[in-house]
Design a protein around this nucleic acid. Structure first.
Lengths: 249, 249
DNA sequence: CGACTCGTTGAGTGATATCAAACCCGGTGG
DNA sequence: CCACCGGGTTTGATATCACTCAACGAGTCG
């Protein structure tokens, strides 16, 4: 927690990508107490129905996802998260979790006291603005997923998910640009796009046959993002990447 | 804009249902300049791709909806809004609209300057918290819609939408409790739940045959909300109605 | 080696879409 | 008053996309 703690610096950098901070804001963040925490693969970060935990997680590495269950037992993954995401903002001011959050791979986070984070956000307008932007982008992604699941066919759906994850990882500086590995099982992929794992399998085959992706058992790669985007009906508008430019108001 | 302006009082009451306000907060809201505005039925409040307008709308009466378009031209409605909702918070801190907002029926709003609203939210922690709660509930509803469209069959989907709208209207004090009229065409209903209008029609018939709803041409009513909820796999958890109780942290 | 998870493939089914026509009703204009 | 129109609803016939069920294969871990 020294003034150049690298983990807190990550948080500062993340928020600075969302809004302009002044030295006081930065100092407030750098003064935040936190703990390092690791979750192994299917561990729950938060369970639907529970009250939110006293600690909020900022992802340092690894992947996580949010999910909800239908009465039939069917699962729907509603978002995927990566380094630089705050996992608990969605419940920062709510009394009960409406969905679960789980680690997708080994997940490392910085745990920050919930009340301290609430105070930080409410007391520092610039930090508040940054967190607002982040949350509003999350909401925008939820909306796009409604469209994806509601109105696109299987091929476009899974292509869309591939595009989104890859572009977000790119924007978060998590890829080397040479391609990327999809860390989801086909079942999870299906749960994210509202399809069966069987149908996901067939859909991936079609995408591969059309040269839009390359596959090697567990791994999905692609270099021709442009074609994939076309097949996916993908427009990056909803990710609000332009937000990194200074906002005038 | 006098200190007992009834419209600003509505905003105060709305926010007070989300978080405790002190007299200073209330005064800040009551000092807000605003204009009264009316939109006729299919008018756009905001268009996808545009920068957000300089004014934000607080709904006084009528209904509105958010929608997105797929490349095929298919439309997806991603939420429905009613009196007491802020239509533009979803873009309050973003530079470009990722979806359109349209009036569903005659819509009356109070227009508030965007920057003034941003300031209000960032400078007054309690108001900020209230608005956060509101926005987080919106996000929770988006998530539930992903589940609805992704993992429920036609019958449950439309039943779920009926439940949600009716319960939200009830919670907003907009119904007399004797039932309620669905103000959507079957096509709009389909666009909201990811179905064809034809299939919505057949689904409504099934719901009626099973005694879950009653229909009279344009109007859908039901008195047995309990059975409908069961058919809809509906749990109100995601609406976070408990938020109205004092939150401890 | 056995057990397990994940991926792959085939055959058959089912839910929902598509296409097309009729209908109903409120509104409008002659 | 009637004729017509137009949006929305209803219905039928058919097509198709995605699901289900079931088996098998391939890699992994103990």
């Amino acid at each position: 927690m020294s003034s150049d703690d690298p983990i807190l610096l990550k948080i500062v950098r993340k928020l600075e990508s969302r809004a302009r901070l002044d030295p006081g804001d930065r100092a407030a963040i750098m003064a935040l107490p936190y703990a390092h925490r690791t979750y192994e693969a299917p561990a729950y970060v938060l369970r639907e129905g529970e009250p939110p935990r006293k600690q909020c997680n900022f992802v340092l590495s690894g992947l996580a996802f949010r999910q909800k269950l239908a009465a039939t037992g069917a699962r729907q993954i509603v978002s995927i998260h990566m380094a630089g995401d705050f996992l608990d903002v969605q419940h920062l001011f709510l009394n009960r979790a409406d969905h679960s959050v789980q680690a997708l791979s080994r997940l490392e986070t910085a745990e920050i006291d919930r009340v301290a984070l609430q105070d930080l956000v409410l007391r520092h307008p610039a930090i508040g603005r940054a967190m607002w932007v982040d949350t509003l982008i999350d909401a925008s992604i939820f909306r796009e997923w409604i469209l994806n699941v509601g109105r696109r066919d299987a091929k476009a759906r899974v292509a869309h998910l591939l595009c989104e994850v890859s572009i977000r990882m790119e924007a978060a500086g998590l890829t080397d640009g040479t391609g990327y590995e999809l860390p989801l099982t086909q079942e999870q992929l299906g749960d994210a796009v509202g399809l069966t794992s069987v149908h996901v399998n067939r859909t991936l085959r079609v995408l591969a046959e059309q040269g839009l992706i390359r596959r090697d058992r567990r791994h999905v790669r692609f270099d021709d993002l442009k074609s994939l985007r076309a097949a996916a009906d993908f427009s990056a508008l909803y990710l609000h990447l332009d937000q990194e430019l200074p906002a005038e108001g």
